[in-house]
């Protein structure tokens, strides 16, 4: 083994370690940037009949109407949730939700019960859920099917 082989074999592990450390820093800096994920409805969304689940990856958001309250249940302990109701004139009414005992359940008093009480009633909704700096957003329709 000549001197060049010895030098190359000696230097290579340091470059390898340097690469791993640099990669780690790079990935850590990427992870710190806030991201926005789009939630999609799982099938038909019927908030009034408690059948509305939005999902992206491991995050699932279930939305249901409980008398005058709209309640959401998430798979992760979220930090904030805001529900928006969009009327036919495209005016938006925001409903900031409050935590219901645990950060997995959030609720807000809304007019959805009246808007969705009858079969075929439908409402355009938007939601923003914040979890560890990331935002999960969706625009969807809820239609009462029975």
């Amino acid at each position: 083994m000549n001197k060049h082989t010895k030098i190359a074999i000696f230097v290579a592990p340091f470059l390898l370690l340097g690469g791993y450390i640099a990669s780690d820093y790079y990935l850590e800096s990427l992870a710190k940037t806030d991201k926005v994920f789009k939630l999609e409805p799982e099938g038909h969304c019927d908030v009034f009949n408690k059948k509305c689940v939005l999902t992206t990856g491991e995050m699932k958001v279930s939305i249901e109407q409980n008398q005058q309250n709209t309640v959401i249940n998430t798979t992760y302990p979220i930090d904030e949730a805001i529900l928006f109701v969009v009327n036919s004139e495209q005016d938006v009414t925001p409903y900031p939700m409050t935590m219901k005992q645990t950060p997995y359940y959030w609720q807000s008093e809304t007019q959805l019960a009246e808007k969705l009480a009858n079969k075929s009633d439908n409402v355009k909704l938007r939601i923003i859920v914040k979890y560890q700096g990331d935002q999960y957003i969706a625009q969807f329709y809820s239609q009462t099917i029975r």
């Binding site: 000549n2 060049h4 082989t5 190359a8 074999i9 290579a12 470059l15 390898l16």
Partner: peptide, 12 residues
């Protein structure tokens, strides 16, 4: 890693 090993021999 394969490339790094290849580089050792190429450099030599």
């Amino acid at each position: 890693i394969y490339t790094f090993v290849g580089l050792i021999f190429w450099y030599t």
